[in-house]
Design a protein around this nucleic acid. Structure first.
Lengths: 157, 157
DNA sequence: TAGAATACGTTATGATATAACATGTCAACA
DNA sequence: TGTTGACATGTTATATCATAACGTATTCTA
C-alpha cells in the first residue's frame, strides 16, 4: 500500500476511495449523498489535511451551500463512518487511507510540505494501552499525531 | 509520584510546581512575572485542562488584564518553558506535572470527570519513532492524547 | 541614566465551530 | 398513491478559540 510520501498514481487514491465508500455505505444502509460524496472527493484529492472552511469553499464552488454547517455536517458524517479523520493539531480533516482496516491511526504531518501520512498504529496503540492500564485508565479513543519532516523534505530546515 | 487519578495532597502539587518553576527559570534567566506566576498557579490548582478564556477570567479576577492576549501570552511562555502543555484535542492547557524530566508526554483525559493525567511516554514514543522511521519520517514533536475513563469513573457510562 | 529588550495592556479582527430552525427529499406503508 | 416520518440540506445567527498590531511600562545593561 502506498503512503503519502511515495510517488504514486494519485488519481487512483480518489477513485478507489470513493468506490470503497460506496460499497461500505451501501452495506450499512447509509447514504453517500452528493454533498458527502463531493466532500470525500475533495479530501481524497490531496494527501494533506484541509480546514473545514477550505472544504466549504470548494463545496460552494461545486454548487453546494456556502454556510459552515454544510461542510461540518458532511465532515462529521465521513468521520463517524470512518472515511475521514480529524487532525486535532491542525483543526483540519483528511481522508482515511484505509477505511476497511484497523483504526486509531497514527498521523505523520510534514512541517515543510504539509503532506500527511496515516500509518500502522498497532505497536503504538499497544504501548499506549499498556501505559494507560498501568494507572487504571481505559482508553476509548486516541489521537496520535507527529509533526516533523517527511522523506522528501528531510534535508530542509 | 502521584498521578491525577490518585487521591493525594493536592495543595502540594501547586506549591511544589511553583517552587520548581522559580528555581528552573532563575537558572535560565527567565522571569516568572506576576501574570505568569498566577497563570501557572491557576493551572496547577486543578488536574484538568483549562481553556484560555477560563484562565483569562481568573486572571482578570486577580487584577490582571481582561483581554485574550494576556492569557495566551502567559500560557505560551509556560508551554515554551515546559511548565504547561496544550491539549490539542480540548483546545485547552494544563500544568506540566514533571517539568524536570522527559518530555513528549502522553495525556489521558477522563471523559466523565475531565481529570487529566500526564504519564510516562517512553514506550509509546519509542513505538511512534519506529513507526515513523519505517516510512522515512523524522518526528520533531508529537501529541499523544487518549480519551476514556479514569479509575474513579470506570463504572460510569 | 540612556537605550535596548522584554513584558503588559488594549483595540480590533481572524479562524474555527455549533445552535436553532425552515425547507427539501425520499422511502415505507396505510 | 398520497401521507407520514426520518433524514438531509440550507440559512441565520452566534459561540468559541486565537492572534495581529500598536502603545505604554518595566527591567536590564552598558
Amino acid at each position: 500500500m502506498p503512503n503519502a510520501f511515495d510517488n504514486h498514481d494519485h488519481s487512483h487514491c480518489a477513485t478507489t476511495g470513493l468506490a470503497q465508500a460506496e460499497t461500505i455505505l451501501a452495506a450499512r444502509n447509509q447514504r453517500l449523498t452528493p454533498v458527502r460524496r463531493e466532500t470525500l472527493r475533495i479530501l481524497l484529492s490531496e494527501h494533506r489535511a484541509l480546514g473545514a472552511y477550505d472544504v466549504l469553499e470548494r463545496l460552494a464552488d461545486a454548487g453546494f451551500g456556502k454556510q459552515p454547517p454544510v461542510a461540518y455536517r458532511a465532515l462529521e458524517f465521513l468521520v463517524d463512518q470512518g472515511f475521514a479523520h480529524k487532525i486535532t493539531r491542525l483543526n483540519a480533516f483528511a481522508a482515511c487511507m484505509h477505511p476497511d482496516t484497523d483504526h486509531a491511526p497514527v498521523f505523520l504531518i510534514c512541517r515543510i510540505c504539509h503532506a500527511l501520512a496515516e500509518t500502522a498504529a498497532t505497536p503504538v496503540r499497544t504501548a499506549l494501552n499498556a501505559t494507560a492500564h498501568a494507572v487504571g485508565f481505559t482508553v476509548e479513543r486516541s489521537s496520535i499525531e507527529a509533526v516533523g519532516r517527511c522523506p522528501n523534505c528531510k534535508d530542509a530546515a
